[in-house]
């Protein structure tokens, strides 16, 4: 197993009076795609937002790439090398596709070769290059959101439920994209509810419930073990697809 890139130790997060994360221990290993599963309200999105510094941990610690980021500000965390695709995609709808990507490329103009690589699995982005992002379809917005996170190489990608509300054809192109990213040894933390989508992609898996991690292991093991799926996720694979 490779070394840890991101480690959460006993992280608690409060939002207003609500105690959402109640001691999360989680490790994301370098070069792996880690899947975070769990039902609605288990604390998956809060975990990602806490990593990103959008909400601050009230207790516990976060270490990213050897650096303590528990108290770091969101821009500092981003420049440390974490890219974030939020659940609502966070697209700037008033800006064009090009301008959205331009902002994501902090070094200046996006690298042409890398852009071509992205257009390879998200051709729609090339087609609507100078179109306002607000006029894109839901799937295309999701592609743009992911493209924005990878337009420059980052050490870690946080992706929140990318398949939510998307048609099967688009989910297929997302799978292609994640395969490409895995091929380049990108480290990814992927939050999902669609087990079918992540079953073949994930290396590691963690399952959350009530603000805690209730299961950690290899994806391959969970994918084989229907009883475990049943007890952890309360779903049978067949019914969910």
């Amino acid at each position: 197993m490779s070394e840890a890139l991101l480690t959460l130790t006993g992280v608690h997060t409060h939002i207003g009076q609500y105690h959402i994360l109640q001691g999360v221990d989680l490790t994301v290993r370098r070069g792996e795609l880690t899947v975070l599963l769990g039902r609605n309200g288990a604390g998956k999105t809060t975990t990602l937002r806490t990593i990103m510094g959008l909400w601050k941990a009230s207790r516990g610690g976060l270490v990213f790439d050897g650096q303590d980021i528990t108290r770091a500000s969101t821009p500092d965390i981003a420049t440390a090398g974490i890219a974030y695709v939020p659940e609502n995609m966070g697209i700037f709808s008033d800006l064009t596709v090009r301008e959205n990507l331009l902002l994501a490329a902090r070094a200046g103009e996006p690298d042409a070769q890398r852009l071509e690589w992205i257009f390879g699995f998200f051709p729609a982005l090339k087609k609507f290059w100078n179109q306002a992002a607000g006029t894109l379809s839901g799937g295309q917005k999701q592609m743009l959101a992911i493209a924005r996170a990878i337009v420059e190489p980052r050490k870690l990608l946080l992706v929140d439920e990318p398949t939510k509300g998307l048609a099967p054809a688009i989910i297929q192109s997302l799978i292609t994209a994640f395969r490409e990213l895995k091929g380049m040894e990108t480290t990814i933390l992927l939050v999902e509810q669609n087990f079918g989508f992540v079953r073949s992609l994930g290396d590691s898996v963690a399952v959350m419930d009530d603000g805690r991690i209730v299961h950690k292991g290899r994806m391959a093991e969970l994918a084989e073990d229907r009883d475990l799926q049943q007890s952890l996720l309360g779903l049978s694979l067949d019914a969910h697809q």
Binding site: M52, L54, S73, D94, L103
Partner: peptide, 20 residues
């Protein structure tokens, strides 16, 4: 562009690494 993006979604501008 950052100002226009920030008007729409300041949080995301921060998540891209800019100090809003």
């Amino acid at each position: 562009l950052l100002i226009r993006a920030g008007v729409e979604n300041g949080e995301m501008v921060e998540a891209l690494g800019y100090r809003i």
